[in-house]
Design a protein around this nucleic acid. Structure first.
Length: 584
RNA sequence: GCACCCAUAGCUCAGCUGGAUAGAGCGCUGCCCUCCGAAGGCAGAGGUCAAAGGUUCGAAUCCUUUUGGGUGCGCCA
């Protein structure tokens, strides 16, 4: 496959050179090169890339770092890709690369287009990412929105990095909350029949159920009026959860999120799935009857010791063992969760990822313990927690009472600022850090608004392409890729190429750490570099992308600009944001 | 009480497998532009990376303890 990751390419060169040095007797046999890194130095004055090889190997080779570095530098300098190799500091080897390498990189971007930066690190491994999984009791709110955006971007990122990804939603349709939903809908149904109803505590008073009550009336007429729960509960529950899932699917669609699998919790009951999952644990000797100690320091008021069926999760890293059956013999919520993850493991995934809200942090250990036990430690489960979203409007906290049922919904946000802006902003913070979302600021057209700044860079490039075309200069990608890129020799231009070179590396780091926000930050930096070059064109006309009357030079410079747009477009694609071609 | 997450510039936050003089935006200070390649540009000041120990050639990053904040803690999902 076509790869243009200069960092891995250069690392391979360094390793080759070290291997040669071993063969020549300069270095002793049996060295481990695993920790040898080739990275961009923090300070550009230190060159284009730096390697720590000499320092890492000094101890095992029983040599001075300086001596290793000198020998390695001499070897590397012989390669025509290396313009300069010099030893610095405690033993760093700083490399300056030949301009042709950077020019070749621009060409590679244009040739590979959207797949420049794709990685095969995933090796086609099957990954299941469960996200959103909101209770089917109402529309999605802002908290869900962050989880949805994060999970979806993570999936795209993993796909881009060569994993085989399944996007999955777990429908909590098996617990008491769907009974509450059913009763709430029933009240709306009575209301649709002209009855005056009140919503007691413990029901959902939200307006969004009015239409569901009316739909129910349209379907069954007055068949349930004046009847007891035993008559209507099952039917109404099913009718209502389906209605809610339709609502949720539509919410997700508005955000541009499409799931591959919706997995029903209810389907685990009465089908033997929970039983067989627990049997699997039982066979490993991890199920027993016992009494838990009360939590210290926070004694529940109605605590009394009870014997329960427990999962020995402490054997797999949990703090205490967890009950899987209530004292009345019914399953706890944890039991279907175990069965669900057992099912995921059984479906042959190499890796599982769960995206939860931060308020579920307490379940991380027990879920990991369960998956570890169920898969005999073979399937890793990573759980990503998304922190709160704090809403603002014009710098003022934007509060709504959830109790009243008028919480801020995903729709509220998307309708006001658009799906693209919503998605990008939700990814401008690490998943485990709280996020401030200001309805006004995210639409601001200025440098401190990353969404705008990145889109603006893309739009600017498109504008140049349009102008060039108007001026009769061919700017299709094949033509640009074939341009004389040796004309790109200005330090300011090479700086942009160097930033482009980081893209494949960013993809791999972000994919490995499961942190899509790194893509958003990188795009901001790339956009910033483009704007910086653009601005320098104000003072130095020779840095302008369009060179009047010189098609060849224009094409070389536009090739660089176009490369930036290609990478921005690819990056935004991962984030699920559509790049803009103009912003007037 | 216990567990998990967090603590980086005045503010909001990045910071890769541990790597060199810790970065960005805002704000502040100074200079420049009034162009239409636009929704400003350039430069500067600003840091005990919460504290203390430890590991290491090297720590914001890993380990331990402490302080301060958030979340959660048997029959709610």
């Amino acid at each position: 496959m076509p790869e243009m990751n200069l960092f891995t390419e250069l690392r391979a060169l360094v390793i080759d050179s070290l291997t040669q040095m071993v063969a020549e007797g300069v270095l002793p046999e049996g060295l481990d090169f695993k920790n040898v890194a080739v990275e961009p130095p923090r300070d550009a004055a230190h060159g284009d890339m730096a390697t720590n090889a000499a320092m890492v190997l000094a101890k095992p080779a029983k040599m001075k770092p300086r001596d290793i570095a000198d020998a390695l530098a001499a070897k590397l300098a012989a390669d025509d890709r290396i313009a300069l190799a010099e030893v610095a500091g405690p033993g760093f080897l700083n490399l300056r690369l030949a301009p042709a390498l950077w020019q070749g990189l621009v060409k590679a971007v244009l040739e590979q287009g959207a797949s420049f930066g794709r990685s095969d690190m995933g090796q086609g491994d099957k990954v299941n990412v469960e996200y959103v999984s909101a209770n089917p009791t109402g529309p999605l709110h802002v908290g869900h929105t962050r989880g949805a955006v994060f999970g979806d971007a993570l999936c795209s990122l993993l796909d881009y990095a060569g994993f085989d990804v399944t996007r999955e939603y777990y429908i909590n349709d098996g617990g008491a909350q769907v009974d509450v939903l059913a009763r709430s809908v029933y009240l709306r149904y009575l209301e649709a029949h002209g009855e005056k109803v009140e919503f007691p505590d413990g029901t959902y008073p939200g307006d969004y159920l009015v239409a569901v009550g009316e739909d129910l009336k349209a379907k069954v007429g007055d068949a349930y009026v004046g009847k007891g729960e035993d008559i209507w509960l099952d039917e109404v529950r099913e009718f209502s959860t389906e209605a809610m899932m339709d609502l949720i699917r539509a919410d997700l669609a508005a955000l541009g999120v499409e799931m591959d699998v919706f997995y029903s919790e209810k389907s685990l009951y009465g089908t033997g799935k929970i039983e067989s999952a627990l049997e699997s644990l039982e066979n490993k000797g991890l199920i027993y009857e016992g009494v838990l100690e009360p939590p210290k320091g926070k004694m529940p008021e109605d605590w009394e010791p009870r014997e329960q069926t427990l999962f020995k999760s402490t054997e797999h890293g949990d703090d205490v063992d967890r009950p899987v059956k209530k004292s009345d013999g019914a399953w706890t919520y944890f039991a279907p969760d175990i069965a669900y993850h057992y099912d995921k493991v059984s479906r042959g995934y190499d890796q599982l990822i769960d995206v939860f809200g931060a308020d579920h942090g307490g379940y991380v250990k027990r879920m990991k313990a369960a998956v570890s036990a169920l898969s005999d430690g073979k399937v890793p489960l990573d759980i990503k927690l998304t922190q709160l979203v704090r809403l603002f409007k014009n710098g003022e906290p934007f509060k709504m009472s959830k109790r009243a049922g008028n919480f801020v919904t995903l729709r509220d946000v998307v309708d006001q600022v658009g799906a693209g802006v919503t998605r990008f902003v939700m990814l401008t913070r690490k998943n485990d850090a709280p996020l401030d979302f200001d309805f006004d600021k995210v639409l601001e057209q200025s440098k401190d608004n990353p969404v705008f700044y990145v889109q603006y860079a893309h739009a600017r490039v498109c504008s140049v392409l349009r102008k060039a075309t108007e001026g009769g200069v061919a700017v299709d990608d094949p033509t640009l890729a074939g341009a004389d890129l040796s004309k790109l020799d200005h330090e300011a231009e090479l700086a942009v190429a160097k930033k482009l070179a980081e893209w494949p590396r960013i993809v791999e780091i972000a994919a490995r750490t499961h942190e899509p926000h790194r893509v958003a930050f990188y795009l901001y930096e790339l956009a910033s570099d483009l704007h910086s070059l653009w601005n320098r064109g104000n003072d130095l006309p020779e840095l302008r992308f369009l060179q009047e009357g010189d098609a060849a030079t224009s094409q070389a410079k536009i090739a660089l600009a176009r490369s930036v747009a290609v990478v921005i477009s690819a990056g935004l694609g991962i984030l699920g944001v559509t790049p803009l071609e103009e912003m007037r």
